[in-house]
């Protein structure tokens, strides 16, 4: 098993008290598997994704990656985990605006010392970004930016890709094309995918789906 969440809970303090976002959630994901996480706004989908990616820590429960509990790791170990094992794709793209496309694509792979020029070139070609390498994020369309974000996530060949509404900012046709591309690349690299989405249509295209409501899996 690649990823295993067991009885995970998470809450946040708010102005009106403590907001319980996740209540004893358990799920697992195998290598190469794709899983869609659906639910209403505020159901805790993104929080669950962040916990799985080591961006945040749960209040209770265990999060195991290849059998190792990452919930108890320190900042430095968690950062190393993110560098090497996880690729992230967000709705807002979150590219680094000061770097051009080439540098953005290579950023995480080089950060984790996993940069492979030949693989990177293949990936760039596959994503149709070869002619855009010297452009900056602000000079790209939304679809182009998301392709860069996917390339960045895959450049270091991570075992797990976490995608938070990756097509949420795109029109339907572009979104479909992007998702298709992402799934094809997953199959080619053997990475597992955990994707958060509002859309049942998109969720149905993934291998498995789970629904989250009021912090619990339905």
């Amino acid at each position: 098993m690649l990823l295993d969440l067991e009885d995970v809970s998470k809450s946040y303090p708010t102005g009106e008290g403590v907001l319980q976002v996740l209540r004893g959630v358990s799920l697992s994901l195998d290598a190469g598997e794709s899983l869609a996480l659906t639910g209403e706004s505020g159901s805790g989908k993104s929080t669950l994704l962040h916990l799985a990616g080591g961006l945040d820590r749960p209040d209770s429960g265990a999060i195991r990656f290849e059998g190792k509990d990452i919930a108890g790791l320190g900042d430095v170990e968690l950062a190393a985990f993110r560098r090497v094992s996880v690729g992230l794709v967000f709705q807002q793209f979150n590219l680094i605006p000061s770097l051009d496309v080439a540098a953005n694509l290579a950023f995480q792979a080089r950060l984790g010392d996993r940069y492979d020029a030949a693989w990177s070139e293949w990936l760039t070609e596959r994503l149709g970004l070869s002619k855009l390498l010297d452009r900056y994020p602000e000079q790209l369309s939304g679809g182009q930016q998301q392709r860069v974000a996917i390339g960045r996530a895959l450049a270091g060949r991570p075992q797990l890709i976490l995608a938070d509404e990756p097509t949420g900012n795109l029109d339907e046709a572009t979104g479909d094309a992007i998702l298709e591309l992402m799934l094809a690349l997953m199959r080619e690299t053997g990475a597992a995918l955990l994707m958060v989405t509002h859309s049942n249509r998109l969720a149905s295209r993934l291998g498995r789906r789970l629904h989250l409501a009021a912090g619990k899996l339905g």
Binding site: D75, A79, F81, R82, R83, N94, P97, S98, Q108, L111
Partner: peptide
């Protein structure tokens, strides 16, 4: 918002 992506990709806050 500029630093968060770098943090998410594995740079520590320190």
């Amino acid at each position: 918002s500029q630093l968060a992506p770098a943090w998410a990709m594995g740079l520590t806050l320190k």
